[in-house]
C-alpha cells in the first residue's frame, strides 16, 4: 500500500485476481499432491482392499437406478426429437441411427457422468468433509492410517471400475427405450429401427464410451475426495464442498467430453 499510494482503488481488483490465481494454483498443487499420494497409496492394498467392494456397491450399484431412469427418458426424448427433425426427405430409420449413435457416443456417458457427479461426487464430498470438520481424518492420521489409502483410493477406484458398467447399462436402457418409443409412437417397425441402429455402428464407439466413463468416474470421485478433504468451517463448509464438487466435476466432465472427442474420434 505504501508503494502504490495513488492507485489504491485499482489495486483491489488486481489483488483479488492475484488471490484467485494463487488459490487456483494452490488447489492445483493440492490436487496434484492428492493424486501423487493416491498413486503411492495404491501399495497399501491391505488398507483400501477391504473397502473397495463396499465403495463399488455405493458408487456403482446404488447409482444404477438413477442412471437407468435418466437414460430411459433420454432415449424416449431422443427418439421423438429425431423423428421430428428427420420428418421430410430423410428416411425414418435414421431415428435408430441417431438414438444409437447419440446414446453410445454422447448422452449415455455424459448424462450418467453428470448425474453421478451430483449423486456420488456430492456424497463423497459431504462424507469426507464431515470427517474433516469433525477431525475424524486427523484421528485416522493419529492412528497411523493413511487417510488417502483409507478414504480416497477405494472411492476413486470404485468410481473408475464401476462407472463403465453403469454407463453401459444406461446406454442399453436408452436405446431400448428409444426403440420402444419408435415402435409405439412413431409407427416404425423393429427392422427399420435396427437397420438404422446398425447403419453406422462401429465397435470403437463402445470403447469410446468406456474410455470416457472411466475418466468421468475418476474425475467425479477424485474431485469429491479432494473437495471433501479440503473442507473447513463446519457444516457450512461441508455444503460448500458438496456444491463445489458438483460444479467442478460437471465442468471437468464437459471439458473431458470435448477432449476425448477431439482426441479419439
Amino acid at each position: 500500500m505504501v508503494l502504490f499510494p495513488v492507485t489504491v482503488p485499482l489495486s483491489r481488483p488486481l489483488a483479488a485476481s492475484g488471490r484467485s490465481t494463487l488459490a487456483a494454483l494452490g488447489s492445483i498443487g493440492q490436487a496434484s499432491a492428492l493424486f501423487a499420494g493416491s498413486v503411492r497409496a495404491l501399495r497399501d492394498i491391505g488398507v483400501w482392499g477391504p473397502l473397495l467392494l463396499p465403495q463399488m456397491a455405493r458408487v456403482g450399484v446404488a447409482s444404477v437406478p438413477i442412471a437407468l431412469f435418466i437414460a430411459m427418458f433420454t432415449g424416449i426424448v431422443m427418439s421423438l426429437q429425431a423423428s421430428y427433425t428427420l420428418t421430410g426427405t430423410i428416411p425414418l430409420y435414421f431415428v435408430g441411427t441417431m438414438v444409437g449413435k447419440t446414446m453410445i457416443l454422447e448422452l449415455g456417458p455424459v448424462l450418467t457422468g453428470l448425474t453421478l457427479a451430483g449423486r456420488v461426487g456430492a456424497n463423497i464430498s459431504a462424507e469426507l468433509g464431515t470427517m474433516r470438520v469433525t477431525e475424524q481424518v486427523d484421528a485416522l492420521e493419529t492412528l497411523a492410517y493413511n487417510p488417502i489409502a483409507y478414504l480416497v483410493v477405494p472411492r476413486t477406484l470404485a468410481g473408475i471400475l464401476m462407472f463403465p458398467f453403469v454407463v453401459l447399462l444406461a446406454i442399453a436402457m436408452g436405446i431400448m427405450s428409444g426403440w420402444l418409443t419408435a415402435l409405439q409412437l412413431l409407427d416404425m417397425s423393429s427392422p427399420e429401427f435396427i437397420k438404422g441402429l446398425r447403419l453406422f455402428f462401429e465397435p470403437w464407439d463402445v470403447w469410446f464410451a468406456v474410455v470416457k466413463s472411466v475418466s468421468f468416474g475418476a474425475v467425479v470421485t477424485g474431485i469429491g475426495c479432494f473437495c471433501g478433504l479440503q473442507t473447513d468451517q463446519g457444516a457450512e463448509g461441508v455444503g460448500r464442498s458438496a456444491t463445489r464438487t458438483v460444479v467442478v466435476s460437471s465442468m471437468i466432465i464437459l471439458c473431458l467430453d470435448a477432449f476425448w472427442a477431439a482426441v479419439l474420434l
Partner: peptide, 20 residues
C-alpha cells in the same frame, strides 16, 4: 453387496459385448 456388485459388473459386460 457382493452379489449386487457382481450382478452389475456381469450385466455391464454382457451389455457391452453382446450389444456390440
Amino acid at each position: 453387496r457382493e452379489i449386487l456388485v457382481g450382478l452389475v459388473v456381469v450385466l455391464g459386460i454382457a451389455v457391452g459385448v453382446v450389444g456390440t
